[in-house]
Amino acid sequence: MDACLWPGKSLIMQQYHDNEWCVPSHDDSYIFEMLTLEGAQAGLSWNIVLSKREEYKKAFHNFDITYCSKLSDGEIENIREEFNVIKNLLKLKSVRNNAMEIIKIRLEFGSFSNFLWNYVDFKPVINNWKLDSEAPAKNDLSEKISRDLKKRNFKFVGPVIIYSFMQAIGMVDDHIITCPCHSKNINVR
């Protein structure tokens, strides 16, 4: 079976592809982590962001939403100076901002996961692409979620970021149809 080509020869990208990409997750901390990392990627390569992932985990206490929501400007500046994360201050401040908004959503929906997965009736959208290049950069759903999150004051949630985020948390399965990781092939590998 031919796997997706986008991970290339990068071990970190291959591991992410094989073990996480398009795998459904309902864990709010993981979902917050992916939202943070996808936002950090804006303008950069995913490989760069993944290479800094462990530093992000240390800096943001394993993406503890309550902890992140209470970070002071000074603590965010310290993270920027002391950890090997993307140094963009707006991206770093978005971690606190988005954590605060997730807490509000949890009060309304019970979890951030419930809020997001409701968009797809709690079932992943399984695509059947023959080539990596067929997967879109954004779609109507990512545009809708992006608009809704922006109305709720989330940052770094444009429709392209949100589509990648949907892949990251498994709301969509964009593995090519011949990839062993595609939903239809999971039980036969």
Results as ranks from 00 to 15, higher is better:
residue 44 L to E: 10
residue 176 I to C: 06
residue 185 N to K: 14
residue 148 D to S: 09
residue 142 S to V: 06
residue 72 S to Y: 12
residue 163 Y to S: 04
residue 131 L to H: 10
residue 44 L to C: 12
residue 163 Y to R: 00
residue 13 M to G: 06
residue 103 I to N: 03
residue 6 W to E: 02
residue 31 I to D: 00
residue 186 I to R: 15
residue 14 Q to N: 13
residue 3 A to V: 01
residue 43 G to Q: 09
residue 109 F to R: 07
residue 143 E to I: 05
residue 112 F to L: 08
residue 177 I to H: 00
residue 89 L to Q: 09
residue 30 Y to M: 09
residue 104 K to C: 04
residue 44 L to N: 09
residue 154 F to R: 01
residue 126 I to Y: 05
residue 46 W to G: 00
residue 28 D to A: 12
residue 41 Q to F: 09
residue 5 L to A: 08
residue 54 E to D: 12
residue 29 S to V: 08
residue 161 I to S: 09
residue 23 V to I: 15
residue 22 C to R: 01
residue 146 S to A: 07
residue 56 Y to L: 14
residue 4 C to N: 04
residue 176 I to F: 00
residue 45 S to F: 15
residue 175 H to L: 03
residue 39 G to F: 04
residue 168 A to N: 05
residue 172 V to N: 02
residue 101 E to T: 03
residue 89 L to H: 11
residue 21 W to K: 00
residue 156 F to R: 02
residue 28 D to M: 13
residue 153 N to G: 02
residue 139 N to C: 06
residue 62 N to V: 11
residue 72 S to M: 13
residue 97 N to K: 13
residue 118 N to F: 08
residue 68 C to R: 03
residue 93 K to G: 05
residue 151 K to C: 07
residue 163 Y to D: 01
residue 178 T to M: 01
residue 124 P to W: 08
residue 94 S to Y: 00
residue 94 S to T: 06
residue 104 K to N: 09
residue 121 D to Q: 13
residue 91 K to H: 09
